[in-house]
Nucleic acid binder design. Structure first.
Length: 637
RNA sequence: GCCGCGGUGGCUCAGCUGGUAGAGCGGCUCCUUGGUAAGGAGCAGGUCGAGGGUUCAAAUCCCUCCCGCGGCUCCA
């Protein structure tokens, strides 16, 4: 037995143990009752396998599935399991990389295109490995040995070559399968009972394989079958909230095969969009915006000026008339630029805020279309702010405030992303740097948590993007604030300053909700179709118990309509229960039952969406309650 | 656009080792006037995405195209 070492644990206690004790053994002695939840260890902050022998004194802490690091370790181990299964069940499969992701993992293979039958075989192989409780065994090898071992796999060879000279190269054996890996891993495959393959698809990876498509298998991993079951249940519930399904059920919108990507908004959908527009316009009026409408089509020369012709043309619908090429506008900015330029401008007019809700068209790649969240024709709550350099900051701050207030109204959770200069950009890098610095400073000063995305900016300027997630967690960009020094210059925009000189304004392109279509899609998933009363196509439905109350119901409906409440009277042809059920299925926020009792007492029985109880109210109480909830845009009925 | 998968009455789906279509919901009609998530009966409705091919025979097998779905790439 070697000399003892002293280990300190997270609770501040310490123990003296022989050198060579594994991290797992040390942690088990420290907290035996919780040992079953430990899947790896942190030694002085670095993650290691439980089987790693400890050599020096230091801090030792457990990693469990509850920790982010633990989840990643388990997902990554699950990826190894999949790779082992693929190598065993699909001929000539060469594993490339298999990292954990935010909500699971994937592993990419250079292999023939997979078919569903392959997945059955792969699942079988996974089960066998789990049942065998295969150990994840780490060993360290020399660069030469690693190269010898992976000589047939150019991808692994590249990773070996990319490993810095001084760094240890480690391998993990799982049964007979060997993978190049830094680790750590879960101790053995019994941890991977809850591994589930979600699907496979071809991917193009510029980095790994520029000349061919790889096959990606995606999955999720949980430490137990029960946890996986719970996840799959949540996932199927999320699928039921798919806005495409809800849009059809609730008759909000539809698509025609003859117009792929061009939504047709049905009467119910128009009601919602009109309310959203009203919501935005109320703010525009308060915040000093002027609304404009510019042409849908512009001649090619306009796009040459704006830069779209060289950098955005492949996304544009083009048409020819009178021997001239016209483009359907993919953005509203060129029109706003032309309006600004249409007469001489004074600094006294700035900030000039021009809003525009016009349909725009983008030729999105066919494979990317997705219900309302990715379409080829849509309307943004768009605006262009023509400002002086000094006014930028105040305007951007106001926008950030408004975004937070607007999204809170919908009880949405959102995130910020600062997108910087793309590979293809207009203007000079130095101007970009300055614009990026301004946005970054405002974000930081506002205490906003944001992610930086290099290369994701618009071709004319950097931007702050707002992202929402759909029911399956896929992110969608909605609001955006873009700082543009280029287009004003290219369009030759000028205003006369107080100094009598001509100056070029800066333009802030911005949307709040983004596009009404995408916003509606995300909102439907967020609410499961239970839109807040102010947005609901039908806000209240009156159910006369028998035909004898129909007249009274019509009278009440007429009263409510005076308060601009969208109300219907249901026919008595169906049973009351059936009509209550239908109203619930159609997500009607307020159901008002009117029977003999209520008519006699001049009252109503109100049933609120999502609840089973009813409340008896007088008619004036009902009117007040409904108008108040709706007018104040309460989220819940 | 790329890879894989799919397309059967308005909707959800069965039929698909070839023998030329079926259910539930919805719709319509009739009966029932019912107190808070489906009252009962009957009827109508489909050139099985489109075109071509194989076959005595195609929803079913093959090819092309269109549309959709999941990923990839890309963006409100």
């Amino acid at each position: 037995m070697s000399d003892p070492i002293r280990l300190t644990f997270p609770d501040g206690t310490s123990r003296t143990l022989p050198v060579g004790t594994t991290a797992g053994d040390a942690l088990r002695q420290w907290a035996p009752e919780r040992a079953a939840t430990f899947l790896a260890a942190l030694v002085d902050g670095l993650p290691v396998d439980l089987s790693r022998p400890l050599g020096t004194e230091g801090h030792l802490a457990p990693i469990t599935f509850e920790d982010r690091a633990g989840r990643e370790i388990l997902q990554h181990s699950a990826a190894h399991l999949v790779a082992k299964a693929v190598v065993e069940s699909v001929p000539d499969a060469r594993p490339t990389v298999g990292p954990p992701t935010d909500d699971g993992f994937y592993y990419d293979f250079d292999v023939r295109p997979l078919i569903p039958a392959d997945l059955d075989a792969i699942r079988g192989a996974i089960d066998a490995t789990v049942r065998a409780r295969a150990i994840f065994h780490r060993r360290e090898v020399s660069r030469e040995d690693a190269q010898k071992l992976f000589a047939a796999n150019p991808y692994k060879m590249r990773y070996i070559a990319d490993t810095p000279a001084g760094e240890t190269i480690s391998l993990y054996d799982t049964g007979t399968f060997v993978d190049l890996c830094r680790g750590p891993h879960v101790p053995d495959a019994s941890w991977l009972e809850g591994v589930h393959i979600l699907g496979f698809s071809a991917i193009t990876s510029e980095k790994a394989a520029p000349d061919r498509t790889l096959q990606r298998i995606r999955g999720v991993g949980f430490p137990t079958k029960e946890a996986l079951k719970e996840y799959l249940k949540l996932r199927s519930e999320a699928e039921a909230r798919d806005h495409r399904t809800l849009g059809q059920k609730l008759e909000l919108f539809t698509f025609f095969d003859e117009s792929p990507g061009f939504p047709a908004i049905l009467p119910n959908g128009i009601v919602v969009i009109r309310e959203l527009e009203r919501f935005v316009r109320e703010h525009l009026d308060e915040a000093g915006y002027r609304e404009v409408r510019t042409p849908l089509l512009f001649a090619q020369s306009v796009y040459e000026t704006s830069g779209h012709w060289s950098l955005y043309r492949e996304n544009m619908f083009l048409t020819t008339a009178e021997d001239r090429v016209f483009g359907w506008k993919p953005m509203n900015c060129p029109g706003s630029m032309l309006i600004f330029r249409s007469r001489a401008r004074s600094y006294r007019e700035l900030p000039l805020r021009l809003a525009e809700f016009a349909p725009i068209h983008r030729l999105e790649a066919s494979g990317t279309l997705h219900g309302l969240t990715r379409v080829r024709e849509f309307v943004q709550d768009d605006a262009h702010l023509f400002v002086t350099e000094d006014q930028i900051e105040a305007e951007v701050r106001k926008l950030l405030d408004w975004i937070a207030r607007a999204f809170s109204t919908f009880r949405l959770r959102w995130s910020y992303e600062l997108s910087k200069r793309p590979a293809q950009f207009l203007g000079e890098a130095a101007v970009w740097d300055r614009a990026e610095a301004i946005l970054e400073r405002i974000l930081r000063d506002s205490g906003i948590d944001y992610k930086v995305s290099p290369g994701e900016g618009a071709f004319y300027g950097p931007k702050i993007d707002i992202h929402l997630r759909d029911s399956l967690g896929r992110p969608w960009q909605t609001g955006t604030i873009q700082l543009d020094y280029q287009m004003p210059l290219r369009f030759g925009l000028q205003y006369q300053g107080s100094d009598g000189q001509l100056h070029t304004p800066v333009v802030v392109h911005r949307t709040i909700l983004g596009s009404f279509e995408r916003f509606l899609g995300v909102l439907l998933e967020h609410t499961g179709g239970r839109l807040p009363p102010w947005l609901a196509p039908v806000q209240a439905r009156i159910l006369p118990v028998t035909e004898r109350q129909t007249e009274a119901a019509e009278g009440l409906a007429a009263e409510l309509r005076k308060d601009h409440i969208r109300v219907e009277v249901a026919s008595t042809e169906e049973s009351l229960s059936k009509r209550v059920r239908t109203a619930e299925v159609e997500r009607v926020p307020y159901v008002i039952v009117l029977g003999e009792k209520e008519v006699t007492a001049d009252s109503v029985a109100l049933r609120i969406r999502g609840t089973k109880e009813t409340r008896t109210l007088s008619r004036p109480e009902l009117r007040d309650h409904l108008s108040q909830r709706i007018r104040s845009r309460e989220f819940d009925p």
